[in-house]
Nucleic acid binder design. Sequence first.
DNA 1: ACAAAAGTGTTAGGCCTACACCCATGA
DNA 2: TCATGGGTGTAGGCCTAACACTTTTGT
Lengths: 227, 227
Amino acid sequence: MYTYQYPHPAVTTDCVIFGYDICEGLSVLLVERGVEPFKGCWAFPGGFLKMDEDAETGARRELMEETGFEAVSIFQFGTFSEVNRDPRERVITIAYMALVQKDSVKGGDDASDARWFPVKDVPPLAFDHDRILRIALERLKEQIHFHPVGFDLLPEVFTLPQLQALYEAILGVRFDRRNFASKMQKLGILQPTGDRPSHLATRIPQTYRFNIERYNELKNSGFRLEF
Amino acid sequence: MYTYQYPHPAVTTDCVIFGYDICEGLSVLLVERGVEPFKGCWAFPGGFLKMDEDAETGARRELMEETGFEAVSIFQFGTFSEVNRDPRERVITIAYMALVQKDSVKGGDDASDARWFPVKDVPPLAFDHDRILRIALERLKEQIHFHPVGFDLLPEVFTLPQLQALYEAILGVRFDRRNFASKMQKLGILQPTGDRPSHLATRIPQTYRFNIERYNELKNSGFRLEF
DNA sequence: ACAAAAGTGTTAGGCCTACACCCATGA
DNA sequence: TCATGGGTGTAGGCCTAACACTTTTGT
């Protein structure tokens, strides 16, 4: 038992994990709750913060424990503190967002109850996680203008149409193919793999990798992607 | 005494209050700590969250108690959870940012130890508040591209040179007078007060108010201010 | 053969930037 | 009278958005 002179809330971390593939579009990773409250409901992976770890460390740990994912880049996007958001006791959650490559990992997941849901088709969630998801999506839309989101969400080798579909899925709009291509080319972070010798028109798309050095240059000088 | 089965961190809120005037430029409101730890140091107004209030309510309450300010718009910009950020016990703080008109309030402040410091001239702060300030400034710079920051920081009636100086103070850059003026005019949220009948060149600047209706229109359709 | 998908280039308009002149104020 | 500060307009360049044609693949 732990005693304090004043009441303390419990503190948890939650992770909104975004993944992407061509079939399902933008998806989030959810786990089915095995205990009350909201037993059987889907929720974001997360759990109570330990006293010897900061919030980001805790979020990464919970993510690993519950889904087997080791997220590269995760970032904090909000803290949710409504008084009655958890029926058990006062719980405040620090929410993180992570972008991962859906296929790359998920090899040796053992007791993982985690499942991907397309964002358009997410079931009602436990606690206030519906609201957390809504805000995560808003923040993701903002982020996409300043960070090359494809780095984290797409496989290492990808095509321009794939990249465009990703942007369209996140922002919920449609772009002109030609304008999108030239805009991306101009940024200079796309590196053709050269696996397709002919650069003529063909139905098989050219494949690219991201040029990380060029991206880091851009990040330092500050860049913005207009849409 | 309050007992829990698992250890709980303490949770506080802190408010980074930005104000602005022509002489001092961009400033933050600090309070001098009267108790250990960091007694005598300056820190952001804030304090422990109560169990029956959410974080924003708590931030507003602490702000009112410690400085007498009733902030119009405050927004959460980060939660700080380093393990040893408070020497007493594990404390996590939810940080808010507020923009206020320096002169408008501060009439009947009684026991207020609060003082304004220009951001360029802030003393070393208690806890990790230096870091919190740095991040608040970064976020403010981002915000300024999407929100008409002048609304909250300038007095109701202001001049274009004043508005420009505010933007320059926040972003730390200089603008061309003519370009800045036309950019702002084009947004359509500036409403000349008409107190100066002659619209010819004169050394007395034209005064404006913000057109709030027009701003709300823009916010719904989404606007961006390039610099 | 025909539909679907990928690649490319041109044009018009708008925004950003850089820059010059006029006028009134106050020292 | 002269320096300072405020107001306005123009020209060039870049980026954006709209748009059409060719080629190949697969049915």
